[in-house]
């Protein structure tokens, strides 16, 4: 099975069960390497259907303060692209079967070498790529390499995206499309934007691909609201924030279970 097929299988199953997929994000290497592995496993047990694993970059311009701080600390601990891939390999060995989508900015990937990154990512057990500062226009090399390797290329759409843009971006996506709930940066928010349902419906008119919504989702209630209109619920900052300090793992387990229940409509 290719990465694209494994991601498709996740959404086929969640659709068959009339629920959305729960898709947590974690910043690799934060708070440290052992806890990263524990957090992802705990989230897996809590009901995660697919993971986004953040490979840290020094200049995360699409991220809010929580993920900026987490990825900065991960970098300060010396977390490299190679380390992140090694952690994925370890999680696979430990028996985790959910798809992993690597989320990183373009420069670390470009510096690593596009083809080499795709080869090593597939070998480590990664199924898809999300690169928020790389629109399809600039991704010709990466897309070609991903197609050949069966790795999904997941692009983002925003509330500002025009109908032409939606069609164009959707045509380059495999696996699912990442809908940014608000024009803005990542980070937990008190309320979901009022026009979210309209935005999801607008994208839905142009594509059959599963639609996952992220940015700003922090509670089970919000996850449940998103699950009613979208195929996937992505949560990052709220979980990263929960992981800090003593009892972090317990808090991640608790919030993960609440978010999974919301996404799964329980």
């Amino acid at each position: 099975m290719t990465g694209v097929e494994r991601i498709q299988a996740v959404f086929a199953r969640s659709r068959a069960e009339h629920r959305a997929a729960f898709m947590p994000y974690h910043a690799m290497g934060y708070p440290d390497r052992p806890q990263t592995l524990e957090i992802l496993q705990v989230l897996g047990k809590a009901g995660a259907d697919l993971f986004e694993i953040g490979i840290p970059h020094s200049d995360p311009l699409a991220d809010g303060p929580t993920i900026q701080t987490a990825t900065y600390e991960a970098l300060m601990r010396g977390t490299t692209v190679v380390d992140c891939l090694a952690m994925v390999r370890e999680l696979r060995t430990a028996g985790m079967t959910q798809p992993f989508c690597a989320m990183t900015y373009y420069n670390p990937l470009f510096a690593y070498g596009v083809q080499r990154f795709v080869d090593d990512a597939v070998a480590a057990g990664i199924d898809g790529l999300i690169v928020p500062d790389l629109p399809p226009e600039e991704a010709e090399d990466l897309e070609a390499a991903c197609r050949a390797a069966g790795l999904a290329t997941i692009y983002l759409l925003a509330p500002t995206s025009t109908p032409e843009r939606i069609q164009f971006v959707a045509a380059h996506c495999t696996g699912f499309i990442y809908l940014v709930s608000v024009t803005g940066i990542t980070g937990a928010r008190a309320e979901l934007p009022p026009d979210l349902a309209e935005f999801v419906a607008r994208v839905r008119r142009h594509t059959q691909l599963p639609l996952a919504v992220g940015f700003g989702i922090a509670t089970g209630e919000q996850a449940s609201a998103v699950a009613r209109i979208a195929d996937g619920v992505i949560v990052g900052s709220a979980l990263v924030k929960a992981a800090v300090g003593e009892e972090g793992l317990a808090r991640v387990a608790e919030l993960g279970a609440e978010l999974a229940a919301g996404a799964h409509g329980q």
């Binding site: 699409a62 790389l134 629109p135 226009e137 983002l156 759409l157």
Partner: peptide, 20 residues
């Protein structure tokens, strides 16, 4: 037309900014 000076330049930004 795509905003490149040979291999340099381009538009490497989050999707929210592309319409702007």
């Amino acid at each position: 037309e795509s905003g490149h000076f040979g291999p340099y330049g381009g538009k490497f930004v989050p999707e929210s900014l592309m319409p702007a």
